[in-house]
């Protein structure tokens, strides 16, 4: 059974979180999707939308460093969390992963690219020496229709190599 008083209290509550290093209060229904908050409420359209059911990865963001489909994340789940979107990855300077995508041509139309780069970021932050299987798993939820993944494979390999060389 629903605890009414709890539900009501919950719905009044402003959600506090951090987006790309900025503390932010979200006065939205607790079930509003993070994707909608980002794209429609905050006009942060670097995060893309394509399937809205967690299959394509176009909407991928980092929540406390983990890759998360923002189309499947509700506002209340963001309470107290650190959210990083593609815009947050290159605030000071372009992320080395983004540079690898640029140099290797890991994109065409670019619509899958923000989500793809977020997933690579999540992978390499946790696993600097990923095996082929690790990469496959990390990117299994990011679809690209343009590149046939050739350029993406090369971009990821390069990003791994770069990290190895610099450490």
């Amino acid at each position: 059974m629903i605890n009414r008083s709890l539900a009501e209290r919950r719905s009044d509550k402003v959600i506090e979180c951090d987006i790309n290093g900025q503390p932010i209060s979200l006065d939205v229904p607790p079930t509003r999707r993070l994707l909608t908050i980002l794209r429609d409420d905050l006009q942060m359209t670097g995060t893309k939308v394509s399937c809205e059911i967690g299959r394509c990865g176009a909407c991928m963001v980092l929540v406390d460093g983990q890759q998360v489909n923002s189309c499947l994340t509700m506002a209340y789940q963001c309470e107290g969390k650190k959210i990083t979107t593609i815009e947050g990855l290159s605030q000071a300077e372009i992320d080395p992963i983004q540079q690898c995508f640029l140099e290797e041509g890991g994109y065409q139309c670019g619509y899958c690219t923000p989500g793809m780069i977020i997933s690579v970021k999540a992978l390499l932050s946790h696993n600097p020496e990923p095996s082929t299987e690790d990469i496959e798993e990390a990117l299994s939820g990011n679809l690209c229709r343009c590149t046939g993944y050739g350029g993406i494979v090369r971009s990821v390999q390069k990003a791994v190599q770069l990290r190895r060389d610099s450490s």
């Binding site: 359209t45 670097g46 979107t85 290159s90 372009i94 994109y107 670019g110 690219t113 923000p114 780069i117």
Partner: peptide, 11 residues
């Protein structure tokens, strides 16, 4: 490219 990989490009 730069606008695509940084998410700045407005489709």
């Amino acid at each position: 490219g730069p606008e695509k990989v940084t998410g700045k490009l407005a489709y």
